[in-house]
Amino acid sequence: MDNAALLAEIPRLRRYARAMLGNRAAADDLVQDTLERAWARHALWRAGSDLRAWLFSIMHNLRVDQLRRPGVPIHSIDEDDLEVPTRATQNDRLEVRDLEFALRQLPDEQREVLLLVALEDLAYAEVADALGIPVGTVMSRLARGRERLRLLMEDRPSGANLRVVR
């Protein structure tokens, strides 16, 4: 496993983790855990196989472990969390927030598939591989996730774009 190749994957891992978790600090913690586990298991990585897909599968498994673990999620608050950089432009902010909010409403397993396809452009077979599920399941989760997101975005009354306070 090559340092430069791994370093090059970090921005993508961060993007996916951020989209998945919606929280910068938690996302970077997940990326950190992913990198640590990748090094711990680098002997298992087959040279020449897709490093990206392998890293996503590590991240997915870590998340499954985390979700299985009972207890209250705890994350530290540091100065980084106080700035909220979503996007530089302001005029499409409400729209972005709506989509982000809608994305949070999806079940984890649908969001995961949707994001791997939308953000990472992974092939369906690669998604299936990374998540350890059959391609058929990928397809049905993708279809359901997309449809749900579409309905969520259409349901909002036009003109009332305010984000629901969670």
Binding site: P11, R14, T86, L99
Partner: peptide, 11 residues
């Protein structure tokens, strides 16, 4: 979705 999370790549 791509546009929304693209800025993370540049951080």
């Amino acid at each position: 979705l791509k546009a929304m999370f693209a800025p993370v790549l540049d951080e």
